[in-house]
Structure formats: structure tokens, C-alpha cells
Amino acid sequence: MSLYIARRLMLAAGVLFIISIAVFTAVRLQPGDVCKIVLATPDADEQQCRAIRDELGLDEPAAVQYVRYMGGLFVGDWGRGYISRRDVRTEITERIPLTIELTLLSTAFALLIAIPIGVISAVRQDGWLDYTLRLLTIGWLSIPGFWLGTMLVIFPAKWWGYSPPVGYTEFWHDPLKNLEQLYLPAFALGLGLSASLARVTRSAMLEVLRQDFVRTARAKGLSERLVVLRHGLKNAMIPVVTLFGLQFGVLLGGTVVLESIFALPGLGTLILGAVLSKDYPQVQGVVLFFAAVLVTINLLVDISYAWFDPRIRYV
């Protein structure tokens, strides 16, 4: 097991290394002169340009720039934005709590909706309830999250004059206000994920409930609830966790859209603003940060299989 974890860790580090090179190269492939972007004029003064290129170290060979940048990452110097002129690391660390809370809340919404639906659907297979729930989930899989999010801002405001408080308050500062600011975007984000999770829960449950040990559990007189939840659900969790790992990226990507709709100062709005203003050091920093998070999550998902199914032994 520990050997397996060590190997997976090495692989993850390798993948992150390749990602960092890819991102670094791609940013330098962008057409257009950096100094025109920085000065925001098409006809930049040659002398100013030279000063800027010098300051940003753009005249050095790409390999040197890369090593310097990566070295900087490890000692906490993540560069400065061309446009914002702000320290990339401070910008990112300031915005992490919001994005983490948003993804956690939407995960909670997604699981709370998906697992009961999936279990009920499987237990009542091919009944009218199963049919309705399946149509419902495939229906809300087709609703764009950003559209739902915007509707959730606009219509309560129009009909009942209700709108959640603007901006972001830290949780420990004022928990209620904090939750009120985040529950709508989290719901819009989680709903799409819940649809696919519910479908996977259903099919995994169907598979598990057909197995011998479930029949045995029933035969020895366990209550149906215990059979379904303890014997069925726990064993049906592997595909659900796999899908969740695969979909976590979708969730992270979704924060870009929903944070911008709800005007939340998180990582999503940071990268969107940076992309739109062509502030590449910021784009690079946030993209690498997202990739690091996602690769770590995928690693954890892989390792968690062993917890859900002790039969899995890694060599």
C-alpha cells in the first residue's frame, strides 16, 4: 500500500512537472508583444519596452526563465501581474477560502441530492418513481449552471425583493451571512454534478444489490434499511467516488462562471479577469494552482479506493 502511494506520488509529481512546462510554454506562445499588453497601447515606445522586458526578465533564454519561475514558486515568489501589478501569491491565497468553501458546499448539495435519489431509484427499479427520478436527473443535466445561477439571482429579487448580501464575508466572521452569500451559487453548481452522481449511484446500487452477499444479508433477516444502506450503499460507493474525482475538475471550472455571476472574489473571478485583461503571470499562477489541486484530488481518489474496497491490493 505505501509502495503504491509512493509510486502514485511520483507519477503525480511528474504530471505536474509536464503541466508546468506546458503552461509556461503556452503563455510564451501568445501572439502579440508583452510590452504592448502592459502599456495597453499598440504603439509602445521602444525605450519603455526595453525597460519592461528587462524588468520582467523576458530577454533571457526560456529555460532560464522557467527555472527562475519554478524556483520562485517554491520560495513563495509567484511573480507579479503585468496589469494588476499585484503579487500573484497574495492574490491567490486571499481568494482560496472562498473557492474552497464554494466547492465544498456544492459537493455537499450534490451528494445530498444525488445519493438519496440514486438509492431510491435503484430500490424501486423500473417503477414509476424510478422513471420520474431518472427523467428528472437527465433533465437537470441539461440546464446550464450559469443560466440557473443567474435566474436564481434575478427572479427572487424580482418576485419577493430578496437578494443575498453582495460580496463575501468570512465564515468565522459571520457564519449566517457567509452561508447566505454562498448557498445559491453552490446550489447552481452542485445541481449539475448531482445529476450525473445520481445516475451512477443508481447503476452501481443495482449491480451491488444483485450480488450474493446482499441475498445472504436479507436471508439472515436484516432489516431492508440495513441491507440497502450498510451492505449496498457502501459497496456502491467506488464508482461514485471515481466519478466524483473525474467531475471535481468540472466543479472547479464551474466556479469561474458562478463566481463571476454572483460577483464573488474567488479564484474563478481572478483567472477570468486575468484572461480578459491578458495578465499572463496571473493566468499562469492560477492555472498551475488549479492543476496542482486537481492532481492532488485525483491522487486521493485513487488511494481512497482501498478504503472502500479492502480487496484492492496494490503491488
Binding site: G249, V256, A291
Partner: peptide, 10 residues
């Protein structure tokens, strides 16, 4: 895995 290392929309 490199492609999967990015959030799709990002």
C-alpha cells in the same frame, strides 16, 4: 493525465 490535470473549463 496532463489534460485531466486541468479543470476542463479552465
Amino acid at each position: 493525465e496532463v489534460v485531466l490535470g486541468f479543470p476542463p473549463l479552465v
